[in-house]
Simulated assay, not measured.
Amino acid sequence: MKEAAMKGSVRFENVTKTFGDVVALKPLSLDIAPGTLVTLLGPSGCGKTTTLRLIAGLESASTGRILIGGEDVTHLSATYRRVSMVFQSYALFPHMTVLENVGYGLSVKGLPRAEIRDRAEAGLETVGLKGFGARLPSELSGGQQQRVAVARAIVLEPEVLLLDEPLSNLDAKLRRHVREEIRQIQQRLGLTAVYVTHDQEEAMAVSDRIIVMRNAEIAQEGSPHDLYDRPANGFIADFIGDANLIEVSVLNSADSTDIALGNRRLTLPLRGASQGPARLVLRPHHLRLAAEPAPDRIPAEVTSAAWLGNSVQYLLSSEMGTLFAITDPRAQAFRRGDTVHLTFDPADLRLVPA
């Protein structure tokens, strides 16, 4: 029973990776529960792809242990790990049919032809490409090719499915469609999946849990909601969704927190903040713009206005600095040079260290 519960789990115990004098991964410990989709998110060079390649066995750990399904695989080559990877480039063989591409890994294992064909056809049906087996990859769209790559990975019945920037070659609309399909397949099959991306929206949309990496280590991890609503620092606040980061001073904190915002005093429904300098996190969609002044409103000048169909985005110059605001397109519109008056709900604000 314990072994079954651990199947598909991934565990890092103080794993590091160096390339000569370059530290690609600082001591990293993490646990990925079976059947979950966990995203490694972060800017280029943060260590997320190195972490994925360590799970796959494409890189070897410099120190520490890696366990998959409770088994120590630290020194096990990629061939003998129960993992499959979906690459950014699809990596399909152009001279092979779709069915042959999907069955390629099975043929390498030496399975009977009839079994390879049956499992490959079942894989294509799983990803919604039943009847496409006789086509060549060049006869498919980018989204269809990516689904072929997913089918090729899942027919190997891996304990862990690894996805390395799988949607980066697709246009924005197709990315949304394919990411939903990948998430549905992962949930339907109960697969453990580790997903690498630098796209925050993509990570928020598909993940049970997100591990945000920065400078070769974990900056914060948690559910998408936790990271968005309770960022640990300014980097997380700005990286997970847009944020205005405003310099403030914490005056005192008990059941609520009093802060100095320029010449203004504001009480926030937050507890436990340390006195001294801090940064206020104000999300763009929490800013409300009005034409008329009022005692609780902060004047600002519109320096840029962009209508995007489903929203209007503003850059504003105010006593709090330059602010970014997103409003409903049905709300009152303002133009560059207009004076507006800003307000927000203190309950929507968060504090992070200075």
Rank of each mutant, 00 (worst) to 15 (best):
A333Y: 04
A122Y: 07
G234H: 08
P112Q: 06
L156R: 12
V160N: 05
I259R: 11
Q145D: 10
N244F: 02
E247F: 00
I246M: 11
F235S: 00
P158Y: 04
V212S: 04
S9G: 13
T339W: 09
V127C: 09
L111T: 06
Y90D: 10
V178H: 02
L140P: 04
V248F: 11
P158D: 01
M213N: 14
L323Y: 06
D31L: 01
L270G: 10
L161F: 01
L106K: 07
R336C: 14
T63D: 01
A347V: 00
S89H: 11
V194K: 01
Y314S: 04
R283T: 05
P94T: 01
R119S: 12
E201K: 12
S107C: 04
A114I: 11
H225W: 11
L99N: 06
P231Y: 02
G57L: 08
M96Y: 10
G20Y: 10
N252W: 10
E247Y: 04
P277S: 09
R264I: 05
L266A: 09
G45R: 07
V23E: 03
T63G: 00
V155C: 03
E125M: 02
A278I: 06
R82H: 13
G103C: 08
A153F: 08
L351P: 15
V102H: 02
D296C: 03
L251E: 15
M6A: 15
P112V: 10
V102Q: 03
G337N: 03
Q186W: 11
G131H: 05
L289G: 01
S168W: 04
G276K: 11
G133E: 02
R336H: 12
L349V: 14
D348G: 15
A300G: 10
L37T: 14
I240R: 00
L37C: 12
I246W: 09
S77T: 14
S77A: 13
S317Y: 04
Y90N: 06
L261E: 10
T18K: 15
N233A: 04
E217D: 08
T36E: 15
L67A: 13
H198P: 12
V302W: 09
G142N: 07
L129V: 01
V38S: 07
V102M: 03
V98D: 04
R335K: 15
H95S: 14
A243K: 02
T126M: 15
T303Q: 07
V148S: 09
R264Q: 09
A33N: 12
T39P: 02
D296K: 01
E221L: 03
A354I: 00
P293G: 06
A78R: 09
G42M: 02
A149D: 07
N252S: 15
L129S: 00
A78N: 08
R230F: 14
T79W: 10
